[in-house]
Each structure stands twice: as C-alpha cells, then as structure tokens.
C-alpha cells in the first residue's frame, strides 16, 4: 500500500508538471503584446516597462517558466492587473465561497443520490423505478445555466419567494444567507443527485444478481439487512469514482450557477479573468483547479484500493 501511494504521488507530480508547463505556454500563445492585452493600449511607456519586467518578458521562455513555477509553489502568483491586488489575496476572497457551496452540494447530493439509486434498484421495473429513472435521466441532461435561469424566473420573478442574486456568509446574516443559497444549491445538487442515482442503481442491480446475495436471501436474512449491509458494500465501489469526479470539479464546476446568481466565487473570477485577459490570475485559477482535481484523484484511488479487495496494490 505504501509503495502504491508513493507511486501515485510520483505520477501526479509528473502530471502537475505537464499541466503547469501547459498553463504557462498557453499564456504565451495569447495574441498580441501581453502587456497591452492586459492593460489596454492607453498606458504610459513607464507602466508598460514596469509590467514588461513584472511579467519577466525580457527573459527567455525557460527561465520565465522556472521563475514563475518556483514562485507559484510558494503561493506567489504576482499581481492581478484587473483587480489591482495580489493574486493570492484575490483567491483567498473567492475560493472559500466556492468551496462552501460545492461542499454543501456534495454532502447533499451523495446520500440522496445513493438513496434514490437503491430505492429504484430494489423496486426495479415498478412504477417508482420508472419515475425515478426518467427523472434522473432528464436531470442529467439539463444544462446548469438553464436550470439556474429557470429557477430565477420561477422563484424570484414569478413567485417573489427568493432573492435573485448575491452571497453572504451564514455567520453574517443567517436568514439572508439561507434564502440566497437555496437556489444555487438546488442547481448544483440536482445534476449530482441524478448521476449518482443512475450509477448506484446500475451497480446495485449488478450486485443483487450475484450468488452471495441469493445465499443471504436463502439464509432468511431480512431484506433491509441484505440491501444495506451485504449488497451496498460492493455496489458503492463504482460510486466512489463518481464521487471523486464530482469532488474534483468542486472549485471549477460552479461557474454557471455563480454567474447567474452573481456569487463572488472562483467561477465568476475565472470568467472575469479571461474576459480581462488577466494573465497571472488565469494561470493561478487554472493551476489551483488542476491541483485540487489531482489531489482528489489520488485520494479516490487510495480509497478505491483500500475498499476493493480485488485491486491488489
């Protein structure tokens, strides 16, 4: 196990190296002069020179990469041109908001998705199963931005029930925060519940058909015990992968909801950075998102190896 973990970490470091080179090169492909692209054409020669040096454009590409990555590892991504602040400071404001929303939606969608999946597998072929499956299939196809706009129309404009935008932390104003998070959270969770429900159902059905479940049944065990103890242990193994995928997209997957409901998180930040061609900010956002995804990937693999005795490490 120790060797397996070390090997995975080594592979991930290589992957992160490739990603960082890619992110760095990407920016040097930006059309036009990077300084003018970032700050606009109407700047003095002095400002131009300062940013030219700040971005290290006078040095060769490899040196620039090395100095960028060695600073990035310590958390120094330079200055954000559009925010007039250190990139780290901007991220520190934005990241917690997105993590808060994404973790909430993660912890709501996992148990609900598994529960619905088991219910529909146990009732296979009955009306309840058809309803749940159809619902899950439809929800998987709904684009998040459409869902957000639809909810906005229904709950804010038509019914005047919920505020249409904004974000405050629960410890600042609990009631306002709850009202403001309902719709974004709903949009973030529905897709997750649907996809986890589908995966749980199909892997549950596969497990239920196996011999050891029949043995358990013929021993006279109670149905609930068979489903929740015997079958679930094996049925949830493929679901772990899906959970990992969802968790990996945590800070990079909520830009639609954030942009519709005007939530100051990572998603809106990245969109803004791209529109302003704010190079250091784009680099930092994409790198951070990739690092989180990679770390979650390793954890998923280790958990997978730990729970599935068929995987030998």
């Amino acid at each position: 196990m120790g060797r397996f973990i070390l090997k995975r970490i080594g592979q991930t470091l290589i992957v992160l190296f490739i990603v960082s080179v890619f992110i760095f090169l990407l920016v040097s492909f930006l059309p036009g002069d990077p300084v003018y692209a970032m700050l606009g054409g109407e700047i003095t020669q002095e400002t131009y020179d300062r940013w030219y040096l700040e971005l290290g454009l006078d040095k060769p590409l490899i040196l620039r990469y090395l100095s960028w990555i060695s600073k990035a590892v310590t958390g120094d991504f330079g200055m954000s041109a559009s925010q007039h602040k250190e990139v780290v400071a901007v991220l520190a404001e934005r990241v917690p908001v997105t993590i808060y929303l994404s973790l909430l939606s993660f912890f709501i969608s996992i148990p609900l998705g598994i529960l619905f999946g088991i219910i529909s597998a146990v009732n296979r072929g009955k009306l309840l199963d058809s309803v749940l499956t159809t619902f899950a299939n439809v929800c998987c196809c709904l684009p998040q931005f459409f869902l957000s706009v639809l909810f906005l129309y229904l709950f804010s404009i038509k019914l005047h029930l919920l505020p249409s935008f904004g974000f405050v932390w629960p410890w600042e104003d609990l009631q306002k925060s709850l009202l403001q998070t309902i719709m974004p959270l709903l949009c973030l969770t529905i897709g997750g519940i649907a996809s986890i429900c589908r995966q749980t159902r199909s892997s549950m059905l596969e497990v239920i058909g196996q011999d050891y479940i029949r043995t358990a049944k013929s021993k006279g065990l109670a149905q609930n015990r068979i489903i929740f103890v015997h079958a679930m242990k094996n049925a949830l193994i493929p679901v772990i992968t899906l959970m990992g995928l969802r968790l990996g997209g945590l800070i990079g997957g909520s830009m639609f909801v954030e942009s519709v409901f005007n939530i100051p998180g990572m998603g809106t930040l990245l969109v803004m950075a791209i529109q302003a061609q704010d190079i250091p900010l784009i680099q930092a956002c994409v790198l951070l998102i990739a690092v989180v995804a990679c770390v979650v990937n390793i954890i998923t693999d280790i958990v997978y190896a730990a729970v599935d005795p068929r995987i030998k490490v």
Binding site: V15, L16, V19, G248, G249, G252, G253, M255, L270, C285, V286, I289, A290, A293, C294, N297
Partner: peptide, 8 residues
C-alpha cells in the same frame, strides 16, 4: 483529464 473539461 486533471483539468475539468469546461475549465480547459
């Protein structure tokens, strides 16, 4: 694969 598809 490590960069979420939409971000990439």
């Amino acid at each position: 694969r490590s960069i979420p598809q939409i971000v990439l």
